[in-house]
Design a protein around this nucleic acid. Structure first.
Length: 479
RNA sequence: CGGGAUGUAGCGAAGCUUGGUUAUCGCGUCUGCUUUGGGAGCAGAAGACCAUCGGUUCGAAUCCGAUCAUCCCGACCA
């Protein structure tokens, strides 16, 4: 009976062409549209709503950790930007710069922020005078611009939405602790909100952020076996603070330089959700961030009692705090099923005359298509636990895939073979940039995603240069 | 920045090799009736300066040149 005649609405299968599948989902689930400037996308209501949910979840956790939100300008004078050498070298190639203001040439061109370290430094310089002012933990929600050469919706764009936390501390210990604490926050949001497990750890010298002493990362595994950097936290040491002249009077009545961190996640998380959970029927959203958590599809909606029942159930669920939609459009039920599956709604409720007569309804889980028959009276009580179960199932499935992808290897041949298959491979090496580049070349794009361990068994040698190995690293091909 | 591809109705495509009256098809849209538990059926209707600019030609969606835009794959980055 199943017939899909409307083949233009179907999406490419993941196994046929994963990249095409991804763009199909972005477009057909109405998450985004392409704008008239390359690399810049329009966030459509459904896609933006996912971001709003992610924001809520992150923001409340930030605040629990003492972070306050601020907003700083989107433009940075070039002269200010140039103060930290490593930083400018890292970002200069991809900045967008305004050179005209009101038709007049600007003597100090304005850089559209690619990140706001220097603006926060400039602000903190004025705010800080005593150790009593510390710590300072500010965050801002904004967009940044990086002139990317190749772009993909949510994964890499010339403009993307994110949050950037910038903190100052009295001691190195506190600052390093903050970088790790925020990494835990990101990890928790992955686990409890996005149902995405991460590989996490410190970045190698080669992969760390421009200007950082240490960079920590969370890395997810996409369905096609490639890794995706989902968020980073950085310990900056005192480098930026020194370059920008940030000082405070310490407990010893001497001028001291604070220790600094920054941390951020972006709308790339939406891309991660799509590529970790999605299937050939479209998007699959974790309940915590789904703009619509339950969709109610009436069957024969003109039949007596159907619509009132649908609306009553909706009312009760909304009262209980859920995001619910009754699809009373005049499309056919089959069309609605396919449509809301495409959009990844976690739970669907069907109510038809037959159900109504028996006082029942049919519930379907998006993640695995499992159908459950429930009595109308108990549905409101059951939905919370069903949604919770969906979350658990999604996380378990993703965790299983991640765990099974990890293999331990000892040399370049094994590494190459492992990365060909996709997923993560752990290998010890010396940690030098030079060797890392050679590994990348030998594996056609394999990169060090995160350090698994800094304790290496005695006598282990780097398979590239033959010197003593210092770290065991997760390698993968990445987006 | 290299490699590949595409640009024809709101969307997706055919037509182009071999130039020839009125540019074809599907989806969507509109009207009406019948339907409704997995992308409904029938009948009718509207909708396109064929990406842009230039060239060849009696004649260009079609051939030639340039430009612009987008997508995909690589090198660099959230």
């Amino acid at each position: 009976m199943a017939k899909i005649q409307n083949k233009n609405d179907a999406i490419t299968s993941r196994d046929v062409d994963f990249a095409q599948w991804y763009t199909d989902v972005c477009r057909k689930a109405e998450l985004m549209d392409y704008s008239s400037v390359k690399g810049f996308i329009d966030y459509l209501p459904y896609g933006y709503a996912i971001w709003e949910q992610i924001q809520v979840q992150l923001d409340k956790r930030f605040k629990k950790n003492g972070v306050e939100n601020v907003y700083l300008p989107m433009i940075i004078p070039t002269s200010l930007f140039n103060k930290e050498k490593e930083h400018i070298q890292g970002f200069a190639p991809e900045t967008l710069v305004a050179t005209l203001g009101g038709g007049e040439t600007l003597s100090d061109p304005l850089i559209i922020r690619p990140t706001s370290e220097v603006l926060f430094c400039d602000l903190y310089k004025n705010l800080l005078s005593s150790y009593r002012d510390l710590p300072k933990m500010y965050n801002q929600w904004c967009s940044v611009v990086r002139w990317e050469k190749t772009t993909r919706p949510f994964l890499r764009g010339s403009e993307f939405l994110w949050q950037e936390g910038h903190c100052l501390f009295e001691t190195e210990e506190e600052a390093r602790g903050n970088a790790l604490t925020m990494l835990e926050v990101y990890d928790e949001v992955g686990r409890d909100v996005l149902a995405i497990p991460f590989v996490k750890g410190r970045k190698t010298e080669h992969e760390k952020f421009a200007g950082a002493v240490a960079t920590y990362t969370i890395e997810a595994l996409m369905h096609d076996g490639k890794a995706l950097q989902a968020g980073t936290t950085h310990y900056f040491g005192q480098g930026f603070a020194e370059a920008f002249g940030i000082r405070f009077l310490g407990r010893n009545n001497k001028l001291e330089v604070p220790h600094q961190t920054s941390w951020g996640v972006s709308t790339r998380l939406i891309g991660a959700v799509i590529m970790v959970h999605g299937d050939d029927n479209g998007l699959v959203l974790p309940p915590a961030v789904a703009p619509i958590q339950v969709v109610i599809v009436p069957i024969r909606q003109e039949a007596e009692g159907i619509m009132p029942t649908c609306n009553q159930i909706k009312e009760k669920l909304v009262e209980a705090g859920y995001r619910v939609k009754v699809d009373d459009s005049d499309r056919t039920p089959g069309w609605k099923f396919a449509q809301w599956e495409m959009k990844g709604v976690p739970l669907r409720i069907e109510i038809g005359p037959r159900d109504l007569q028996e006082g029942k309804l049919m519930i379907t889980k998006r993640v695995n298509g499992e159908k459950i028959s429930l009595s109308i009276d108990e549905v409101v009580d059951k939905v919370p636990e069903i949604l919770e179960q969906i979350h658990q199932d999604m996380y378990a499935k993703a965790k299983d895939q991640l765990d099974h992808s990890v293999v331990d290897v000892e040399n370049l041949e094994q590494l190459n073979a492992a990365l060909e298959k996709g997923g993560y491979a752990r290998m010890a090496f010396c940690g030098e940039e030079e060797c890392e580049l050679k590994i990348k070349e030998a594996t056609k794009g394999g990169t060090a995603r995160a350090i698994y361990s800094e304790e290496v068994p005695e006598g282990t040698l780097c398979p590239v240069c033959g010197k003593k190995a210092t770290v065991i690293v997760y390698f993968a091909k990445a987006y």
